[in-house]
Amino acid sequence: MSTLTPPAQVDIVEVAPRDGFQSIREPLPTADKIRCIQALIDAGLTRIEIGSFVSPKAIPQMADIGEIVAHFAERPGMRFSALVPNLKGAELALAGGIRELVFVVSVSESHNRSNVRQSVADSLAGLANIAEKLRELGERDVRLRLDLGTSFDCPYEGRIDWRQVDAVLDGARNATQGIELEVALCDTTGRATPYQVAEHFTRLKERHGESRLRWAFHGHDTYGMGVANALFAVHHGATALDAATAGLGGCPFAPGATGNTATEDLIYALHGGQVHTGVDLARLLDAADLIAALPGGQTASHLRHVPRDRVG
């Protein structure tokens, strides 16, 4: 009987300050956002998607991103990333001190048009513009990450075959030649199953496996598969996992897809396999309570409702 050996370490990318806060309609006080982010840092999270540099008209919740980034400047050991929708957003993020840029392209044409009002080809052209800017700057400490939305399922087109993901990833790699890239396969609707996750990572790693390419997984827990999918992703090549403390957020353009995978649920599973995450689960649960108390948010966490003396 074979034993499934867990990896020694996994990067946890906390996305509540961007994907989570963005899901709340009414703007939150900046001080409340800062308090929540500090609680996440205090829990030991070192990779945090802190927000997005988008037009305040498009997403009012992100209007204070500059102030938030400035507050957390010069934090040794922290990796703050920000979503950027275009070259202008990338330039603003870099000027604000962000050294990790996140760019999103949906594999599904219809979802990409709904999400960013562009064709997939146009989005890839935008990615190429950002990559060219990074080459011009020659800054080797800037990281680029590509989130491939609807990598498993689309709310408009249904199940996504791994070959569709492969075609978009081919275009993205052509656009970013010479730049190290982290690629996140995103289960936008939460409808992926562990076996589909395993197939996608296995097939795509066979096609694109090389040292300059790193892999991540971003899951939702809409169908209760969030933690299972993340574990299958790790055992098939992912070295980073996205999650949102308290399970805050989801995709506003994917009907029914509320609820990111809760960071605390994922950490509990990983710690059960002695996987190092650097996260203090008790302090993370304190942060989860703080986030769950924000007005207007939708949260979905299992561990937060377990008596605290039963956790650990």
Rank of each mutant, 00 (worst) to 15 (best):
A39T: 02
C154I: 02
I41M: 14
H302R: 14
I59L: 10
A82K: 00
E132T: 14
V104K: 00
D286A: 12
G256E: 09
R203H: 12
R113C: 10
R212L: 08
G237V: 09
Q22K: 09
G209A: 07
V120A: 01
P85V: 06
I68D: 04
G126M: 06
T176E: 09
T245H: 03
E199F: 11
H305G: 08
M225W: 10
A70E: 15
D11S: 14
S106C: 14
H218S: 03
G20N: 08
V165M: 01
N174F: 06
P307H: 12
R143W: 06
H71K: 06
H236P: 11
V84G: 03
I24T: 11
T299W: 11
V104P: 01
E199R: 13
V165H: 09
F232L: 11
A70Q: 15
D170Q: 14
R310K: 14
H236Y: 12
A58V: 00
L83D: 03
A8R: 15
P29E: 12
Q196M: 09
W162S: 09
R35M: 05
P7Y: 02
L285N: 15
D265P: 10
P60E: 05
P17R: 11
R135Y: 09
L40V: 10
A198E: 14
E182V: 03
A228N: 06
K57T: 07
F72S: 08
T202P: 01
L124F: 04
D64E: 15
P7D: 11
P7L: 04
G126S: 04
F217H: 15
A300N: 13
E210K: 13
H276S: 12
R283W: 04
E157S: 08
D42F: 00
G209C: 01
D286P: 00
T189R: 08
V306M: 05
L45K: 09
C154E: 09
P17Y: 09
G138A: 08
E157P: 00
D122W: 04
R75T: 10
N260H: 13
